[in-house]
Every structure is written in structure tokens, then in C-alpha cells.
Simulated scan of single mutants.
Amino acid sequence: MWLNASCLIEFQISVPTPFLLMLRPRSGSQQWIMREEYLLSPSVPALEFTDMFGNLCQRIVAPAGNFTVSTSVDIETTDESDTAPGSPFIEVQLLPPDVLPFLYPSRYCESDRFTEMAASVTANQSPGYDQCNAIVNYVRKSIRYTPGIGQQIISASEVNQLGQGVCRDMAHLGIACCRALSIPARMVVGYLEGLEPMDLHAWFEAYVGNRWYTFDPTQPDLKGGRIAIAFGRDAADVAIYTQFGNPVDLLNMNVQVKKMTGPGYHSKAQ
């Protein structure tokens, strides 16, 4: 399917402030970018680089006053996310080197605390994809999805105790349980067509059967219409913006995803 996705972020800034931005998706096997706009207002110099996970990042110093970041992308993405019941577990010694960082505990995914729970949740499941699916079912049944209320980032342990969370928190728990079983797992932040309420979204991917597969505890079915912006070990790696120094005021953030009938042909917002 063809989608147009846009994000508008407005800040009020008291003094010139350094930012790291992460708002540019990349073309890859699951998505292809046809057109992209990226506007900073007022215009400031931007230095782009690729981080350790391959994400496109921009360094800027935003001036004092009202500052706006506006992005828009036309992209072709998959209608449905791939599934692979029965896809096997890959032994650690056979994993590609670039996958290994997603095995370790991280700041918000304390996988070393979930060894027993993950084993219990996945009992009698075939090692690999079926274990990941059992973990997603556990998170969906045990954690109440509460979009729009999670301002503070919480860890997998915290959301498991609290029993509710936003998409980011539920992804943390899924990732931690997968890693506890020596299954590499990574967080993804991006857009999801038809998400209610509309916002940026987070889900996770697990590496089984020699490739990454999508898992999303917040959605009853694994639909497509996803646009990945950034990948990382947890939410600390995939923040769409990070500011340094004095606090800034976030005045507004507006996310829209529109279906397109084809390249350049927009239909109504979702």
C-alpha cells in the first residue's frame, strides 16, 4: 500500500538549544520512500549522520523562540506484516554480528530479570517464532493498553508490575522476555496506518529463522501499513528528538497518516 505520513512538532525555546532529531525513515526490504520533505522553521544548519543501528539522525542548534520541525513522506509499504509460525530459534553462535547487541539487557529491557517468567510463559512452545507469539499473547492479556497517558518512560519490570502502559512500555516487556530466551529483539518506532488515537507508534521485532519479524502487543491482529523510522535496543535509542541543556516547552505535536491510491494520489486521513 501507499501511505503519506507527516509529523509536526512545535517548541518554545528560551535559549539556543542543541537537539538530536530522528525523524527520517529509510528505504529497505519492507518500505520504499518515493518523496520526502523535512522542514525546520526558522531554518538552521543541520548535520546528518547514521548512528550505530543505521538510523538517520540530524544534529541542530535550535534558536530561541518558536521553533518547528515538519516532516512528510510518501512511502510504499507492505499491506500485511509477515508471520512465520514454527520459524526456528537461531543458536547464539550462529547469529550475525550486527544482531548480537539485541541479546543483552538494556536500560529499559532488563531481560536478566525475566528468565523464569519467560520460560513459564512459553512452556510447551517450539523454540523461536512460537515463543515470541506466546510472549505477545501474555503481554496483551496481562497489560492494559492505555494510549496517551504515558509521558514518563518505564521499564519492562515496571510495566509488568503496574499492569498498564503505552505501546512503548508493552514493547519493552516483549523485548525483555524474548531476550531472556536468547532471542534477539529490538524496538521500532514509526507510523501505523489506522492507529487510534493517531500518534507515533512503537512495536518490536524478534530475530528468528534468520530474519526479523514484527510483533505488536497493542494490536489484535498483525496488520501492515507500518512505516519504521528508527530501530534500537529500547526507547532510549529511538527518541524522535532529544534536547540538551535547559528544558524546552513542547507546544504541539501532530501526526497524520493518509492512504494513497498510488504514488502522488492522496486519499482521506486515517
Rank of each mutant, 00 (worst) to 15 (best):
C109V: 05
H266V: 10
R26W: 04
G262L: 03
W32C: 11
I90S: 10
N133Y: 05
P184M: 07
R211K: 15
P97A: 11
A176M: 07
L162C: 05
G262I: 06
L173E: 08
E76W: 10
C7L: 15
N66P: 01
M52E: 15
M52C: 11
A236R: 06
V238W: 05
V61T: 14
C7P: 00
M187E: 12
D249K: 12
A185K: 08
C177V: 01
V257H: 10
P147C: 06
G194V: 05
I175A: 12
I227E: 11
N137Y: 03
S27M: 07
N246E: 14
H172L: 01
D130W: 02
Q12F: 07
V69W: 01
L23D: 05
E110V: 03
E80A: 09
L39G: 05
A180G: 09
E196W: 01
M187I: 12
P97Y: 06
K258H: 11
L192I: 06
P147D: 04
R140T: 02
E196G: 01
N246K: 09
T50W: 04
M117W: 08
I33M: 08
S182P: 00
A123R: 12
F204I: 10
G28F: 01
T242P: 00
Q131C: 14
P16G: 03
K268Q: 05
L192R: 11
D199A: 14
E110R: 13
K258R: 13
Y38C: 09
M52H: 07
Q31A: 12
S120L: 14
R211W: 03
F114Y: 06
P42V: 14
I154G: 04
V257F: 06
S72D: 12
L173C: 06
Q243H: 11
A206G: 10
G232P: 06
L103G: 11
S29E: 15
S72C: 14
S70M: 01
V139S: 07
L192K: 13
S14D: 15
Q270M: 05
G225F: 00
A185W: 04
P96W: 02
T146N: 09
D237P: 04
Y213A: 01
Y265C: 02
G232H: 10
P42W: 11
C109W: 01
W212A: 09
T242N: 00
N210I: 00
I75C: 01
T77G: 06
R211I: 04
G232W: 05
G245I: 00
G54E: 09
G174L: 02
L20E: 15
G262W: 06
I9V: 15
A46D: 03
L103D: 08
V92T: 14
N254S: 11
H266L: 12
W2A: 05
L222C: 11
F114Q: 10
I135M: 08
F19W: 02
F49Q: 08
